[in-house]
Write a protein that binds this DNA or RNA. Structure first.
Length: 516
RNA sequence: GUGCUUGUAGCUCAGUUGGAUAGAGCAACGGACUUCUAAUCCGUAGGUCGCAGGUUCGACUCCUGCCAGGCACACCA
């Protein structure tokens, strides 16, 4: 990774210049290309210790560094920052290496379980589910891309009150009786009541199909009912009793979750003798950790469930140990809801179900790529507005086409040239060429940081930025009309950019068109 | 009422453990197609970072209070 490489160069230069400091500084991308390619705030961090201004310190360090024979990078002090510029040869060498070798990351191999969507099987998926689905699948792609071990799972809530009501509703429709109190309304229920299959099965199949349309799939669909049948829920009761973490009150059995960070205690067995959803969910999480050995759990839940997080965490701490207090071991990503708009106006009603517009309708309307892109693009913490008309536009308002067009352009050019690629650099790089190489070289850091922060949206932003850099390069640097040696070098640049952008598409789960 | 979350340009959003003049895109305005795809590029303009204090060499970033929107506060799932 380039930042690490630069850090090494800096450390090496400091050592040669006999400027050893204990303070660890960071390497960041220079805020302005005029300053350099990268920068470090080392001088700011040293200011207190050396009792001098960052400006003076940076200048002094750079003066020392300028005395040593240079090692691929050069240093320049401006405003207290030490700016770092990569030599052309170093940049080129790195680019060729990236083109010819697969990326390697030193990722932890601890097993990760990513659970997402887990929508109730009693109704259609809506756009919010779509957001969590796309986020989860892109996150899985991202973590796997950097070499982490991830399994994905959909927890099917196929048991309990809701399911009972669901079947009662189906029965009522079949018997042409009114829908029971608290039952399910909507056109889709009538369709399910007429289906040949079991209505619940039928609805789950439908969910699988729709998620499949946007390339969202799971390693395992885990049934809640199976936890009842296997007696795994009962095991939890025994364990909590052993740990003296449960008690009986007012006819119900309670978990002392308030001892483990929850705001109050929670019911495990209701006074009517039924298990709560919460108890079974604890069994599910216990199963993930203890039976199946996952030490890192990531769940993606809708914002309407965020209040549920502390009690599950409490359960994990009680049952599996205090490490689950740490977000690294148990992380719940809260996806905010989505407002659907059409030409700036809110759309709520669905033609088919008479309810909220469904995910299926959105996908039909705007297609897989746009659905995925618009739902991944934004930080999941933000409440987003999703404009259906905007997502369909083939204009600059739609970044999906912008990045895909860049890719198609590269493919088109490469299909036209016959000259071989040349890795021996024969020219002085112009600013556009340099910017393109730098953008490619940044990818490793970007994707790694995105993985660490569980933020696939960063990859989407990076892709747009790389596409922009490429489009500028395209305007300025013709390939076909260039002299043969320059052409050979530019082919390397194009192939590398094509490869990098291709990685982005793979992670985002968006198609990479060779022509548009 | 309590908790979580959001508030940055007209709009949609970035802003990396606190660092350089707060950045992009769209929309607006002005330019560039006999050209490897103009689904593109180049330029101009646009800001009291919700408000008020505090912490320090330095705050969009951290702390406190307030304002506004969203969500949640079940022996439902």
């Amino acid at each position: 990774m380039i930042k690490r490489d630069i850090q090494k160069k800096l450390d090496e230069a400091l050592r040669i210049a006999k400027q050893n400091y204990s303070i660890q500084s960071g390497i960041e991308i220079a805020s302005n290309p005029a300053f350099g390619d990268y920068a470090t705030n080392l001088a700011f961090l040293l200011a207190k210790e050396l009792k001098s201004s960052p400006k003076n310190i940076a200048e002094k360090i750079c003066e020392e560094l300028s005395k040593i024979p240079q090692i691929d990078v050069s240093f320049k002090a401006i405003n207290g920052f030490i700016n770092i510029s990569l030599s052309q040869d170093f940049l080129w060498e790195k680019a060729c290496h990236l083109l010819n070798n697969p990326l390697r990351f030193n990722a932890s191999q601890e097993p990760i379980l990513l659970e997402y969507v887990s929508a109730n099987p009693t109704g259609p998926l809506h756009i919010g589910h779509g957001r969590w689905a796309v986020l989860g699948s892109a996150l899985a792609n991202l973590l796997r891309f950097v070499g982490m071990k991830v399994n994905t799972e959909f927890y099917i809530n196929d048991s309990g009150n809701q399911i009972r009501l669901f079947y009662e509703t189906i029965q009522a429709i079949q018997d042409k009786r009114p829908i029971p109190e608290g039952g399910y309304h909507g056109q889709y229920m009538t369709e399910l009541a007429q289906a040949a299959l079991d209505p619940l099965e039928s609805n789950i199949l439908q969910q699988k199909k729709i998620l499949g349309q946007i390339d969202v799939s799971f390693d395992l669909w885990y049934s809640e009912k199976s936890l009842h049948e296997s007696g795994k829920a009962q095991v939890i009761l025994d364990l909590l009793k052993e740990k003296n973490a449960s008690y009986t009150e007012e006819g119900a059995l309670w978990f002392k979750s308030s001892d483990y960070g929850d705001e109050k205690d929670r019911v495990l067995i209701k006074a009517d003798g039924h298990m709560t959803y919460f108890l079974v969910d604890l069994a599910y999480h216990y199963d993930k950790v203890v039976s199946r050995g996952y030490t890192r759990l990531i769940n993606i839940w809708g914002a309407d469930h965020h209040g549920y997080v502390p009690r599950v965490r409490a359960g994990l701490i009680a049952l599996c140990g205090v490490i689950y207090k740490e977000p690294h071991h148990f992380k719940v990503m809260i996806g905010q809801l989505v407002n659907l708009l059409r030409n700036g106006e809110p759309v709520r009603m669905s033609k088919r179900t008479g309810d909220m517009i469904t995910l299926e309708e959105v996908i039909e309307d705007i297609g897989k790529d746009a659905t995925r892109y618009f739902l991944i693009e934004k930080n999941p913490d933000s409440h987003i507005e999703f404009d259906l008309e905007l997502a369909k536009k083939n204009t600059m308002e739609n970044p999906v086409y912008y990045i895909q067009y860049a890719y198609a352009r590269m493919c088109s050019i490469l299909s036209k040239v016959t000259a071989p690629a040349s890795e021996s650099l024969s020219m002085e790089l112009c600013p556009e060429e340099r910017a393109l190489l730098l953008a490619n070289i940044r990818f490793e850091d970007e994707v790694w940081e995105a993985a660490e922060l569980l933020s696939p949206y960063r990859v989407a932003h990076y892709a747009v930025s790389l596409a922009r850099t490429f489009h500028s390069f395209y305007e300025k640097c013709s390939l076909i009309q260039a002299p043969p040696d320059v052409q050979g070098n530019r082919i390397v640049m194009l192939k590398l950019t094509q490869k990098t952008l291709g990685h982005c598409f793979d992670i985002l789960g968006i198609s990479a068109p060779t022509k548009m």
